[in-house]
Write a protein that binds this DNA or RNA. Structure first.
Lengths: 215, 215
DNA sequence: CTTTGTGAAATCCTTCACAGCG
DNA sequence: CGCTGTGAAGGATTTCACAAAG
């Protein structure tokens, strides 16, 4: 029974299961229980089972899930069966780090090109790539079939760059600029703001201090 | 009516409001409506109002929220009234980028020290800091009153480092390693996994393609 | 006897819609 | 009249608890 609609919350957890499955495979395991997956991801086994039930992928009662089968299933659902080409726009500190980050390549993505607007950066070598001028962006995206863009530009440039990559055919954006991006409905955006993350932590940290003081 | 318990989902949005308020202030605005904040953050005005109502902070009917007052209120709730010292552990590509990232300092955090286990990195200069040996970690955390650690170590080291910083007194961890960290209950963890973000995007991107093909 | 798969209950979050205040 | 603040309704997500399968 493949493919009911998969809830958003479940989708967000599938990568973690994938991660846990790869580890299990590396450890030589052929099956894992929902309890195993739960422990590896810091969740509850009931949640794991519910999530996996949306895939329609079957475990075996009394045994668990076949590691290899479930890995394939999740990879397929996530669209990771072939490497997906990615362009990184904005080669500052963060862009450079992302360009050299091997986690992307090891998990289904291929950094295909680096782009920056700053003339002094163009032509410089970063990792395996030469930084290309922003004017090349539309051609690059079209010619190489790129559908995913990673934006590490200054906040002030992000919206304009987003519009540009979308016009060129990108349909998914991972945005590191601390701004909300307005994009057409068919485009997905995820914004990762490092300061935001710290600020959220700050709240809970303070909360702990307060309640500890109160007790 | 200050301080009912603030829902998790609301807490996660407060930094965005803060961001929007700073922009409004820079633009010379003295008040903003929930509709303004909604537009700036890509949310609905009803959600903004509900969120802000949890702070107990009052807007003025017919007018909106006083920019300065609300900024102070949110900063206080998030515990950002003073700069908080942060240690970055793991000075690889990503750690280096984070160390030089000025967004942290501009939004309430102060990078206080950089630490790495690799002897060849120790003593090297990164931004304003000299990389210190991992053995110094407990002393650094204690002596400088550090309560927040940013982990950019290899996945295999993250859990051990987490245990170490927690033992030294850290109560909040921003984790960039793609692993679940087990920590005591009084410690908050947020894990940001860049590949995970791309994988989630990949799902929705594929979904769009499929449903476009079907139509 | 173990572990999945899932209805039903409980909880959390969002949206609606409007009373009420300035 | 404009915009906030909020009950109430509606959805989504999580948890519970257990029947069913190997």
């Amino acid at each position: 029974m493949t493919a009911r609609r998969i809830p958003e919350a479940t989708v967000a957890r599938l990568p973690q299961y994938l991660q846990a499955l790869v580890e299990a495979a590396d450890a030589g395991r052929r099956t894992v229980s929902s309890e195993d997956l739960a422990r590896a991801s810091g969740l509850t086994s009931a949640k794991v089972r519910k999530d996996l039930s949306f895939l329609g992928s079957y475990g075996t009662r009394g045994v668990g899930y076949a590691v290899e089968e479930l890995t394939t299933e999740i990879s397929t659902v996530l669209g990771l069966t072939d490497d997906r080409p990615v362009v990184i726009v904005g080669i500052g500190n963060l862009g450079r780090a992302l360009a050299s980050y091997d986690g992307f390549s090891r998990r289904g993505f291929r950094v295909e090109a680096l782009v920056d607007a700053d003339p002094t950066k163009i032509g410089t070598q970063v990792g395996d790539h030469v930084v290309q001028p922003a004017a090349q962006l539309p051609d690059l995206v079209r010619d190489r079939g790129i559908t995913i863009a990673v934006l590490a530009t200054p906040a002030g440039r992000a919206q304009a760059v987003a519009a540009e990559v979308v016009a060129a055919g990108v349909t998914a954006i991972l945005n590191f600029a601390p701004v909300h991006l307005d994009v057409p409905e068919h485009v997905s955006v995820r914004t990762v703001d490092l300061s935001t993350e710290l600020q959220i932590l700050s709240f809970y940290e303070q909360l702990g201090q307060v309640s500890a003081a109160a007790s």
